[in-house]
Each structure stands twice: as C-alpha cells, then as structure tokens.
C-alpha cells in the first residue's frame, strides 16, 4: 500500500512536471569538455511561447553515470535574456551528466539534463 501510494505520488509528480514547458539550449566551452579542466556551461531557457525564462534560482551539478561518485556542484549566474551560466571542473574521465535544477520565478521546479559522454583528460 505504501509502495502504491508513493508510486501514485511519483506518477502524479511526473505528469505535472513544469520542466516540460521549458526548453533548454546548452553550450559548453570548451566543447567537448576536458576532465581536469574548467568547463563553462551556458544554458538558455525559453518557455513554451519562446519567451526567455528570467529570474530563476538555479544551480548546476555534474554527476557521473555511476551513483556514489563525487558530483561537482556549481553556482549559476543569470546573464539576462534567459541565459544562465555556471563554471565547473569535471574531475574524472568517463560519462557525465550536467543537471540544471532549481526554482522558477513562480516557485515551480525545473530540472534539465545534458549527457556528456566520454570525457577525457587533454592528451599531450
């Protein structure tokens, strides 16, 4: 019964996800990012009417594909016109996922993810 209740809550939560109404365009610098070096992630958010999403309180995480690995967490600065920017250092070779999450101005929650596969250290 508990599982059913939690399941229903999760399913309901998924249905009402406001993230679906927001599109995110990601730009990484450098691209592809290098392990052990800084990467700047620039994310442009638009709502369903293509209006820039402003005033969101966001943060950026870099998570590895394997649970339990130390994530990288970065503050996100709003640059205006729906553009948000965070700087982080991917610490390890492998597959990463960058996760932008937080609250929109109306208090609804947002989560956007960019998979970054095959991050490597610079060679030579």
């Amino acid at each position: 019964m508990l599982a059913c209740a939690v399941s229903a809550a999760w399913a309901a939560g998924c249905r009402s996800d406001p993230s679906d109404q927001i599109t995110a365009e990601w730009t990484l610098e450098p691209s592809p990012p290098l392990a052990g070096s800084d990467v700047v992630a620039r994310i442009t958010l638009h709502d369903s009417a293509r209006n820039p999403v402003v005033g969101a309180k966001l943060h950026l995480e870099g998570q590895m594909s394997h649970p339990g690995m130390t994530p990288v967490v970065a503050d996100v600065i709003e640059r205006g016109d729906g553009i948000y920017e965070g700087r982080m250092r991917l610490t390890m070779d492998g597959d990463w996922a960058l996760v932008l999450s937080g609250e929109l101005r109306d208090g609804s929650r947002i989560m956007k993810q960019l998979d970054v596969a095959g991050v490597h250290r610079a060679t030579g």
Binding site: W10, S65, H66, V99
Partner: peptide, 18 residues
C-alpha cells in the same frame, strides 16, 4: 525493495539521482 522498484520505474533516470 518497494522504494527501489517504484523510484526506478517512475523516478528520474539519472542513476546518481535515483
């Protein structure tokens, strides 16, 4: 085990968040 199944099926599919 119930939590694992429910969150695995309905939660976010990013492993470190599930």
């Amino acid at each position: 085990a119930g939590l694992v199944v429910v969150h695995g099926l309905f939660g976010p599919q990013l492993a470190p968040r599930n």
